[in-house]
Nucleic acid binder design. Structure first.
Length: 307
RNA sequence: CGCGGGGUAGAGCAGUCUGGUAGCUCGUCGGGCUCAUAACCCGGAGGUCAUGUGGUUCAAAUCCCUUCCCCGCAC
């Protein structure tokens, strides 16, 4: 079976790696073009591209899927199916129709929940107790295709998006292999999705700001849902402070007010309840625990955030 | 050359503007108090102040220059 793999970030890389190690034939890998990244603004390849090249796969990075060139490229490999994981571009119908076995997508949510760009972060930020992987036949909608299989995982309170992501990536890879086994036996289930679902909007700068104007639980979920990257933040004396780890507390006070500061962390009042910040990172500094932060703080007396 | 912050004891910081014996909080080690302690008290160790046998100076953590490294923003 010839598979064209389409994907971009780490999540997709893990799946591609599993396919390669299982010995599947992958004549072509499609990923996003290199993008300028980092302080030096250097052109950086995607995780998928980096890995694919390291194992000698053919990689193409079309700028658009809506060109004759893209269609010709994808037809020319005569693949049986396209497997897509967090590619980052919408596939038009003429592309979807190319492979005889269809376009199969690995999506990081239990559809129809969290369709779209940032299902992993949104699930954690929303405080979901359960999440998982969906394999589906792609259609022209955004993550609305018929479902082949789903795998569930619980999201514990102590888990951040990074940990959840890693577990999900591994599970996504397993799901892909399971699908391929079913496909080889010619026995692939296909269940329609409900129309109604939720949408996981892309994370923007506004999502990162912790105002403490939400409840303690919402604040905690925001912090862990954005950890370890891109990180939630608040401000202290006009400077950004990234918030990496927190715990829910039950103190009361004006949102942003520091209620206590010690070995348990820095307790900050929220609209309802409080959160203990246990790991944070001032602008220009490295990540540190709350004790270290307090050791170096000049005016330990009555500081407050976002003030 | 996209913008900016920083490299001082194991950790986090002050001191740099206005050169003149290296400080703070925490940790660590020893002792004491206590039924006991992560609490408290007393004492000690620990730093060629990132780099350059760099420049200026009677004197450089501090002023000037070199190189390396870390981080925030933006993308």
């Amino acid at each position: 079976m010839k598979i064209v793999f389409m994907g971009t970030p780490e999540f997709a890389k893990v799946a591609l790696e599993a396919l390669v190690q299982a010995g599947h034939e992958i004549p072509l890998v499609i990923t996003q073009p290199d993008k300028p990244k980092g302080r030096k603004y250097t052109l950086t390849p995607s995780e998928v591209k980096e890995y694919a090249l390291s194992v000698g796969l053919r990689v193409e990075t079309p700028v658009s899927m809506r060109t004759a060139e893209a269609e010709e490229l994808l037809r020319s490999v005569e693949a049986d199916l396209f497997m897509v994981a967090a590619y980052g571009k919408i596939l038009p119908k003429n592309i979807l129709d190319i492979p005889p076995m269809g376009c199969i997508c690995i999506h990081a949510s239990l559809l129809p929940a969290w369709r779209g760009a940032a299902p992993i972060q949104r699930a954690v930020m929303n405080g979901d107790a359960e999440g998982g992987i969906s394999m589906m036949y792609m259609d022209e909608g955004i993550d609305t295709g018929d479902i082949i299989l789903q795998k569930k995982i619980s999201i514990t309170d102590g888990m951040n998006a990074g940990e959840y992501h890693d577990a999900m990536a591994a599970m996504g890879a397993q799901a892909a292999l399971e699908y391929l086994r079913m496909a080889q036996e010619g026995n692939v289930p296909r269940v329609k999705q409900p129309q109604e679902g939720s949408y996981a909007e892309k994370i923007t700068g506004e999502d990162l700001y912790v105002s403490f104007e939400e409840t303690a639980l919402q604040t905690h979920n925001r912090i862990r849902g954005l950890a370890p990257v891109p990180s939630a933040y608040c401000t202290l004396e006009g400077k950004r402070v990234k918030l990496h780890e927190s715990r829910v507390g039950c103190g009361k006070g004006v949102p942003g007010e520091v209620l206590s500061a010690g070995k348990n962390g820095i307790e900050v009042a929220c609209k309802e309840g409080s959160v203990f910040i246990t790991s944070l990172q001032p602008e220009g500094k490295k990540r540190m625990d709350a004790s270290s932060f307090l050791n170096g703080l000049q005016n330990k007396e009555g500081f407050r955030f976002n003030g």
